[in-house]
């Protein structure tokens, strides 16, 4: 249970971005990030999971780099591979600086994604990805912490099933503080630019004034998508 003082501090931190978001909504200028700023809104990176070599690991092991946290499963037919490929492209754009970033791919389908399968899967995408999974209680604790959901679909006659999961990518700075939330549809360029800023040690401040752009409607979390039909990333990934 949080102490009262902690709750107040958390409230203050949470209301800050909301006030900033309100300003943005009212046309008060854009934030300097391409994706949604969640500094102070979401808790620090913390978990106990099992890595792709079968070892029980905690978040401390991964601090020191900028970590991206993404939930998926290896049998995912479209959204996960697309998102992983986009992130890999963004990492490639960083050049040597890519050594300072890492993607934590958390499989929410531990019954099918054993360490070996997970390892082979993430290795196929690139060197900067770590595969993680865990027991159901471990996964539930982590998904609750970041307010995401996952759910299993019905089994077909082959015993295959879809896993419905979140599309967001949570970005944590080197010290494990939550900083950005990406939808996965920003594109590799935008992701790379935000990661560069984080690697350069962008301060934890909110929306500094910046030159106005003509059609900034809302922050990235709000309505960046002009498409009328829902894009693949809009619906929970079904496989």
């Amino acid at each position: 249970m949080h102490g009262i003082r902690h709750s107040f501090a958390a409230l203050r931190r949470a209301l800050g971005p909301a006030a900033a978001a309100l300003l943005v909504a009212c046309g008060g200028g854009g934030t300097h990030w391409k994706s949604m700023d969640i500094t102070g809104v979401m808790p620090d990176l913390r978990f106990t999971l099992v890595d792709d070599e079968g070892r029980t690991v905690t978040a401390e092991r991964y601090l020191g780099k900028v970590n991206l946290l993404y939930f998926g499963y290896t049998h995912c037919p479209d959204v996960c591979p697309l998102t992983l490929a986009t992130i890999e492209r963004a990492f490639a754009r960083l050049g040597p600086a890519a050594d300072g970033v890492r993607l934590l791919f958390v499989s929410v389908d531990p019954s099918r994604d054993g360490p070996k399968i997970l390892h082979a899967y993430v290795a196929a995408f690139g060197a900067h990805i770590v595969g993680l999974t865990g027991t159901q209680p471990q996964l539930q604790a982590l998904t609750k912490r970041y307010r995401v959901s996952y759910r299993y679909g019905r089994r077909d006659q082959n015993g295959d099933y879809a896993v419905y999961h979140s599309a967001g990518i949570y970005v944590f700075d080197r010290r494990g503080r939550a900083r950005l939330l990406m939808t996965g549809r920003e594109g590799a360029d935008a992701i790379a630019r935000d990661l560069e800023r984080l690697l350069a040690g962008a301060p934890r401040t909110l929306a500094p004034p910046r030159e106005r752009r003509p059609s900034v409607r809302a922050s990235a979390g709000a309505c960046p998508c002009p498409a009328r039909a829902p894009l693949p990333g809009t619906a929970p990934a079904a496989g």
């Binding site: 958390a10 949470a14 909301a18 909504a25 979401m42 979390g221 709000a222």
Partner: peptide, 10 residues
């Protein structure tokens, strides 16, 4: 929308 997003995250 942006306020709603933060309310659902925090």
């Amino acid at each position: 929308p942006p306020v709603h997003s933060y309310a659902m995250l925090s």
